[in-house]
Write a protein that binds this DNA or RNA. Sequence first.
DNA 1: TATATAATATATCAATCTGATATATAACGA
DNA 2: TCGTTATATATCAGATTGATATATTATATA
Lengths: 181, 181
Amino acid sequence: MDVKTVCLGVLTLGDASGYEIRKLFEDGPFQYFTDAGFGSIYPALNKLHGEGLVTCEQQTQSGRPDKKVYSITPQGRASFAEAIRATPGPDKFRSDFLLSLFFEHFLPHDLIVGAVDERIAWYRAKLEHMRCCDRSGWGTGPVFVNEFGQAVYSAALAFLEENRSKLIETGNGSTDHQAAE
Amino acid sequence: MDVKTVCLGVLTLGDASGYEIRKLFEDGPFQYFTDAGFGSIYPALNKLHGEGLVTCEQQTQSGRPDKKVYSITPQGRASFAEAIRATPGPDKFRSDFLLSLFFEHFLPHDLIVGAVDERIAWYRAKLEHMRCCDRSGWGTGPVFVNEFGQAVYSAALAFLEENRSKLIETGNGSTDHQAAE
DNA sequence: TATATAATATATCAATCTGATATATAACGA
DNA sequence: TCGTTATATATCAGATTGATATATTATATA
């Protein structure tokens, strides 16, 4: 799903600036299954504006820099409704952490331990964030997606907690000396 | 982790052509946590060759096109060992399927049902593929990573199977008529 | 026999995206 | 006053994606 389409989706929920859209991807309910940075959001909003799928209003704020608030047009809504009907591609789990563990014999023991424990803490924090938010008033879709995310992240966390010892037993991992040669 | 580094990692396991590396990302043990296409693998191998991190030997084959077989050099091995020590970034789960379910009210009911059932079948097939391979002879890292993947994919599958009904109850999703307007 | 399809194999490229950097306003605490 | 943080937009080099082109050979189909 390209960034233009995802931005249109966010704008179906209400008007927003590029900065606000970015925050939804970073901290909000979208963070567990999609992503986009400023470098793709701002150009996407400009293109959508050029295509008449959104309108833009410059807003002066007190105590903050001005912002450009975008609103979806009826054409934008129709375009989104059509785009979202396409058969979605496969789900993807991507992890440099797992890649490095695959090559665990290249890593010094203490680095493996540190990486696993850091990742356990990271998954705990993410899960807490997913669970803490007030879901009353959420629709069927957002609740389903949030709970799907919880299920997947819980499984990852549980696996790390339960199998941590298998990876960090003495004998796994290389010493600094070996890794350097 | 950039494609150059991942290619180096694969080559630490043995010599391979670009085509073979691609197959490992598509069907092999790497498919559950990393990815790269021909469009990035071939340029990456050329750059690695230019940097002296791999050597290349053209191999004539009978019954098949010629291939370029790459081997990692000691410098390549050292470069990989160093690159893999960097603290890995966050794990990412990316899903256009979940994105479309988030906006479930834009989708006709039959399309939601079809998408969910298709995804259930897809996760079942992936899991079967992960479980069927012979893991005897695998090292600690590959086994750990494979089992992590199984845990995560199983959780996703179980969630879909258990919560399918919540999403496809009558009343969820729009009719074709509403979605088109 | 001819033809289509699929698998093997490499290469290239436009469009897109990432991640970093630049610029600016203003709040807040030290 | 100074540094840090948050808000806000913009740009861009470099990397990646996804599609397309090209070629060889095996296998199935008509």
